[in-house]
Design a protein around this nucleic acid. Structure first.
Length: 279
DNA sequence: CCTGCTACCTGATGGC
DNA sequence: TGCCATCAGGTAGCAG
């Protein structure tokens, strides 16, 4: 489910739990989670190594090891869980009435980190270096990094003829924005999602930059208060709906001009926007 | 190179 | 209640 702010909140919460901890054992419950890599390869790769730092780029979580790294990507529904010890993990994971779905888990001395995705889109992979990971290597500038400036965005926009909405979803240009927050940023910038990227005026590009930064910043604050609780298998971010001005509000009045929010299809995905005040 | 489409999976929801 | 269609916050892979 997550876009950049959700992943950032997960990374900040995860860091203190696993940094400088040694991976004692890798439990593979659903080997699909490492495809196309072999789960046995990932297990051999990671077992015995220590996690030095936990980082993020775009929607990827990066676990930097003594040497090499693990990448985790949640796609639509992936999430993390925490068990206080191996016994608790073995008793609860995929067992019994109240089974907790887990695909893969890293066992540490202080607990067990589970990666879970019922839908099996999410992935955990092992790499000698980040450049080996094609999806990661192809990412553009991260939307929360200091390098994501208004002039950088203006140049990227100028180089693309695609509709704004599709431009924002393209992780090779700006990394981290997904379907929800692209709709939100365009609503705040009062820009029509169908406009061609290279047709924006400089002041419109500036508005879009400001909207992206402020939307992601506000959502991150919301995601950190309260912070994710990996111990609760049902945990997820709360209160995000109250921030949304366009996404999921089809037919409801625009918060700016009261015209009904429209849902349109773009690139086989839903875009929500105000037909009156987004131009 | 760029763009557009489908596949990958499972679960929730709403209409009949 | 059951059944079917549709939708879901993402990306890789492939064809043109």
């Amino acid at each position: 489910m997550p876009e950049l702010p959700e992943v950032e909140a997960v990374v900040r919460t995860l860091g203190p739990l696993v940094q400088n901890r040694r991976i004692r054992f890798v439990h593979v419950l659903h080997p699909i989670a490492t495809k196309p890599q072999a789960a046995s390869h990932l297990a051999r790769f990671a077992q015995g190594r220590r996690i030095r730092t936990v980082g993020r780029k775009g929607k990827y979580v990066l676990l930097h090891l003594d040497s090499g790294l693990l990448t985790m990507h949640f796609r639509l529904d992936g999430q993390l869980l925490w068990f206080s010890n191996a016994k608790e993990f073995l008793e609860r994971a995929n067992q019994g009435e109240n089974a907790v779905h887990v695909d893969l888990a890293l066992e540490f001395g202080n607990g067990v980190l589970g990666f879970a995705d019922r839908r099996h889109f999410g992935r955990v992979h092992a790499w000698e270096s980040g450049e080996e990971c094609p999806g990661l290597a192809a990412l553009g500038v991260d939307a929360l990094s200091p390098d994501f400036t208004a002039s950088r965005l203006r140049k990227l926009l100028a180089a693309s003829k695609r509709p704004l909405k599709e431009f924002l979803l393209d992780q090779t240009r700006v990394a981290g924005i997904g379907n929800i927050y692209s709709c939100e940023a365009l609503w705040h910038a009062q820009l029509d999602p169908r406009r061609r990227a290279n047709r924006l005026k400089p002041r419109e590009a500036l508005r879009l930059h400001k909207a992206i930064v402020s939307v992601l910043g506000r959502v991150l604050e919301c995601c950190l208060h309260p912070a994710p609780d990996f111990r609760d298998p049902a945990w997820w971010f709360q209160g995000l709906e109250t921030i949304l001005r366009a996404y999921g509000r089809e037919g409801k009045p625009c918060h700016r001009c009261a015209a009904p929010i429209r849902r349109i299809a773009q690139g086989s995905r839903s875009t929500y926007c105000c037909a009156r005040c987004q131009k």
